[in-house]
């Protein structure tokens, strides 16, 4: 039988014991290849929990690579990650987190706490420091998870800087090239809107999210946006105290078609 990992339940220790590396940290001496990047992702508290949404475009320079990327990733049954930055690094980080959280849960027979999950993401960002400094592997994700130390479990949102600093947000968080545009709108809505995002129903929150992405796409060519005419919608997940729900394209179309203004 294999020996115990140096730190019980730690998947990265298991990989290290088998001389496998989860992230690439080599220093490059000259300019690297053109990276696929740019995004608009955000999360905010609404009446039932947290909604996390993102556009589906990936770009490389001025080229659109695809409009079918899912940037909101279900890490486990109580955690969501919104990735912004270089997909090659960000998707690998998501995969490391997915395996790590499930590995811990199965091997230790208990869930990893929310603070530990938040720090696990920070640890990956810190280990990506050399790529971040070189400017070719920058990732600035958002994380939403359930705090199960309270009853009922409470959804919370965290945002990171590319070096791994993490902060909890009380209302909303945004990331990606289109985030500047919608951050102002979300802040305005939070202060003067009726309803405020935190008071919105699911239908209102989904409609608000889709309109935010449409606005971001108007000002940021690297954000794919939403176009009901071509059945192009966003990736939207909802985190409630009971777990995660996927808001499908069909549901998004239905909520958007209901012609009641969000505010």
């Amino acid at each position: 039988m294999s020996s115990m990992t140096p730190m019980a339940g730690d998947f990265l220790s298991l990989l290290a014991s088998q001389k496998l590396s989860p992230v690439r940290t080599e220093m490059l001496s000259s300019g690297g290849p053109v990276q696929t990047q740019a995004t608009t992702v955000f999360a905010f508290h609404f009446a039932d929990g947290v909604i996390m949404a993102g556009d589906r475009r990936a770009t490389a320079g001025n080229l659109i690579v695809t409009d079918k990327v899912d940037k909101i990733i279900e890490i486990d049954s109580t955690s969501l990650l919104a990735i912004a930055g270089v997909p090659a690094t960000a998707f690998e980080m998501a995969r490391v987190l997915q395996t790590s959280f499930e590995y811990y849960r199965r091997s230790q027979l208990q869930h990893l706490s929310l603070p530990a999950k938040v720090r696990a993401m920070a640890r990956l960002l810190r280990e990506n420091l050399s790529m971040t400094i070189q400017g070719i592997g920058v990732v600035a994700p958002l994380f939403a998870g359930l705090d199960q130390s309270v009853t009922p479990a409470k959804p919370q949102i965290y945002f990171y800087d590319p070096l791994g600093a993490h902060f909890e947000t009380v209302d909303h968080a945004t990331s990606g090239s289109g985030s500047g545009t919608i951050r102002s709108i979300m802040s305005f809505q939070e202060h003067y809107g009726n309803p405020k995002p935190s008071q919105m129903s699911l239908a209102e929150a989904v409609r608000f999210s889709l309109r935010l992405l449409m606005t971001a796409a108007e000002f940021d060519s690297a954000t794919g946006g939403v176009n009901p005419g071509t059945h192009t919608f966003a990736t939207i997940r909802v985190l409630r105290s009971t777990g995660i729900e996927i808001i499908t394209s069909e549901q998004q179309a239905e909520y958007l078609a209901r012609n009641t203004p969000a505010s």
Binding site: L14, L20, E102, S107
Partner: peptide, 11 residues
Amino acid sequence: AAIDAAHTEAF
């Protein structure tokens, strides 16, 4: 041992 092997394989 089974959990270690399965997760390493999956990753």
